[in-house]
Simulated assay, not measured.
Amino acid sequence: AKIRSKLEKEQRARREALEAAEAAKRERERHEAEERARQLAEKRARADEERKRREEDYRAACRAKIAAEQKAKKEAEARAKREAEERARLEAEEAKRREEARREAEEQAKREAEVTGTVELAMQSSSLKLLHKGVELAELYGVASLPIVVEARAKVRQLEADAMRHEAERARAAAALKAAIEIDEIELLESALGAAERSGAGAELLVQGKARLEELRAAETARREAEEAERIEAEELARVQGEAIAKLRAATDIAADIAADIETLEHAVAEAVGVGVVGHELWMARAALGKLVEERERKAAARRAAEAALFSALQAEDVALVEAALDDAELAEVDEADVSAARQRLEALKGELLALEQAEARAAIDVADDPE
């Protein structure tokens, strides 16, 4: 029973499988039939559309052909019109060009004449500014190749080179003048100032240089005047010193020979020192003056001693002492009035002494005559 049941199940499964396969086949065939029908319908639709498109293309081609023919006709007419207009325009332009060429030729002739006149005037005047203007005008007018313009360019280069040299000379002269202003040399400043004036240096610098030159000249004049004054002063000093030296020598010689007035020698020494005398003569005079001063002091001391001795002798009222003191006073050059007064006192003392002696003598005689 189990085997039979198993076999039945297997048979049933095979039948179901066959039925399923048959159903799938029928379904597939149905789908294929539907697909063929759909494709056929699409093919027919495409064929209809293609036919319609060809018909539309044909009609469009016809319309395009007609339009093209009309357009070509219009274009031919327009082209003919344009060609006629172009010919007229070209003829007008040619006429205009010829007129413009004629006018341009006239203008060119005028410009060349203007440039030539300007350049000729500039060449005659050698004006760098006018030459530049003429060359620029020639370049502006397009006539720079004219022979006179070429010559003007060469002239410009020459004048510019000359101007550069002149400017360099002016700069060198200005620098030299500035340096000379700082140096106290009149000849150098005069030379630099002349070169600066010839080179056309700046007016302010020239004024400064001239002022400095005047200042140096004034200083030189003052220096020469000072030197002359110094020379005159030196000559005068030499003269005064010579006179002072002569006086010194004379006073010194006198002092060496005699007991000269010491004030004369002192005055001569003071005068010599005052005028700047130096040397042997002054030394000799001072030595002589020293000796005179020593001698004066010695005499003064002796005179004071003699005066004191005379005063003491007079006080003592001793005739012998007074006489000796008077002799010393005369030798010591005591004041004459004092000596004279002392002599008078001496005479008085002598008189008193004589009177006393006479009185004593009479008294002695009287004593001798009296017997008692």
Score class of each variant (00 low, 15 high):
residue 151 E to A: 15
residue 167 E to Q: 11
residue 182 E to C: 03
residue 191 S to Y: 02
residue 167 E to D: 14
residue 181 I to E: 11
residue 157 R to Y: 04
residue 196 A to W: 05
residue 166 H to S: 14
residue 198 R to Q: 14
residue 189 L to W: 07
residue 153 R to D: 04
residue 191 S to A: 14
residue 198 R to V: 09
residue 158 Q to P: 00
residue 158 Q to F: 12
residue 177 L to M: 05
residue 174 A to L: 00
residue 184 D to N: 06
residue 158 Q to C: 09
residue 172 R to F: 02
residue 198 R to A: 15
residue 184 D to R: 09
residue 161 A to H: 11
residue 179 A to L: 13
residue 153 R to L: 06
residue 162 D to G: 07
residue 182 E to T: 09
residue 167 E to L: 10
residue 186 I to L: 09
residue 174 A to H: 01
residue 159 L to N: 08
residue 174 A to V: 02
residue 188 L to E: 13
residue 197 E to K: 11
residue 192 A to F: 06
residue 172 R to Y: 00
residue 183 I to C: 01
residue 165 R to H: 03
residue 150 V to Y: 02
residue 197 E to Y: 01
residue 162 D to L: 13
residue 200 G to C: 09
residue 201 A to I: 05
residue 165 R to K: 08
residue 190 E to H: 08
residue 176 A to M: 07
residue 154 A to N: 11
residue 161 A to F: 03
residue 181 I to S: 05
residue 176 A to G: 04
residue 189 L to Y: 05
residue 191 S to W: 03
residue 189 L to F: 02
residue 196 A to H: 08
residue 194 G to W: 01
residue 188 L to W: 01
residue 158 Q to G: 09
residue 151 E to Q: 15
residue 201 A to H: 05
residue 197 E to H: 04
residue 186 I to M: 01
residue 172 R to E: 14
residue 166 H to F: 06
residue 166 H to W: 01
residue 170 R to V: 03
residue 196 A to K: 05
residue 162 D to E: 15
residue 156 V to A: 15
residue 184 D to K: 07
residue 169 E to Q: 12
residue 185 E to S: 13
residue 179 A to N: 10
residue 154 A to I: 05
residue 163 A to Q: 14
residue 151 E to W: 01
residue 166 H to E: 14
residue 172 R to C: 03
residue 195 A to H: 13
residue 186 I to W: 00
residue 168 A to I: 01
residue 180 A to M: 06
residue 161 A to L: 11
residue 154 A to C: 01
residue 175 A to M: 12
residue 155 K to C: 11
residue 186 I to D: 01
residue 190 E to K: 13
residue 158 Q to M: 11
residue 189 L to N: 01
residue 166 H to L: 08
residue 161 A to R: 14
residue 172 R to N: 12
residue 180 A to E: 02
residue 198 R to K: 15
residue 171 A to Y: 09
residue 178 K to S: 15
residue 157 R to D: 11
residue 160 E to A: 09
